[in-house]
Simulated assay, not measured.
Amino acid sequence: MTNPPFFEITCVILCGGKSSRMGEDKSLLPFASSKSLTQYQYDRLKPYFKNIYLSSKVNKFDFLNNDSIIFDENKDIFSPILALDTIFKKLKNQKIFLITVDTPFVSIESISKLIEKSKDVDICVAKTEKIHNLCGVFSSNISESINTMIESDIHKIGYLLKNNNTLLINFPNDNEFMNINNKEDYSNSLEFISKNNNSNKQKNTNS
């Protein structure tokens, strides 16, 4: 049996979004057999990474202490650029795998490919029908670029990608990178994971 991959870089799960389209904090919604989407994402990724953190404005989670959370310094503005600035202030001189809490279907195989391809670039992110700006590897080399953007009041991740050494990695399955943004997405994702779990159970029964 092949050993699962183990990544010698840190993973940060972004959980500080506004969830305006969901109408409630999606990071706390129940998911599969987990009490929350955050706990599901954390538990499935933790075995594969040297270190793993959550990025959030506050500790709203009941399964982690503050040591595992990187607190966004700006409590009033919801900006991934500001979150990245805080992350790189804590995690200096390294590459980090970033993923949003609302993309629970990105496979370990795809994560492994992104990490493998990131060696010679500052940013390496996934691309299907669109660019998945916050699913990939980010180097602390971009800290200066982030600071310049903040000083200029620019908060678009796309701008960060365009102005740094960025590699886009194509993946064939758009569903794998689906975001859970609204109630319909949430319902569809629960149905999707239920079908997957049942399929896996069936395979185990037949094997």
Rank of each mutant, 00 (worst) to 15 (best):
T2R: 14
F7P: 11
K18T: 14
S19L: 01
S19A: 14
S20F: 12
S20I: 09
L28T: 08
F31R: 07
S33F: 07
S36T: 15
L37N: 04
Y40H: 04
Y42F: 15
K50T: 12
I52P: 13
Y53N: 06
L54E: 07
K57E: 08
V58L: 14
F61D: 06
N65R: 00
N66T: 08
N66R: 02
S68V: 01
S79E: 00
L82E: 01
A83D: 00
I87E: 00
K90N: 15
K95M: 10
I96W: 05
I96L: 01
I96R: 01
I99T: 14
I99P: 07
I99Y: 11
E109I: 07
K113R: 05
K113L: 09
L114Q: 00
I115S: 07
I115T: 09
K117W: 03
D120Y: 08
V125W: 02
A126R: 00
E129N: 12
I131D: 11
H132E: 10
C135N: 08
G136I: 01
V137L: 04
F138M: 07
S145G: 01
T148I: 10
M149L: 13
K156F: 15
Y159D: 02
L160S: 02
L161W: 06
K162Y: 00
N164F: 05
T166A: 11
D174K: 12
D174G: 08
F177A: 09
F177D: 09
N179H: 08
N179L: 06
I180H: 09
N181R: 06
N181D: 13
K183M: 05
E184D: 12
E184V: 07
D185H: 15
S187G: 02
S189Q: 08
L190P: 01
N196F: 12
N198M: 11
N200Y: 07
S207V: 09
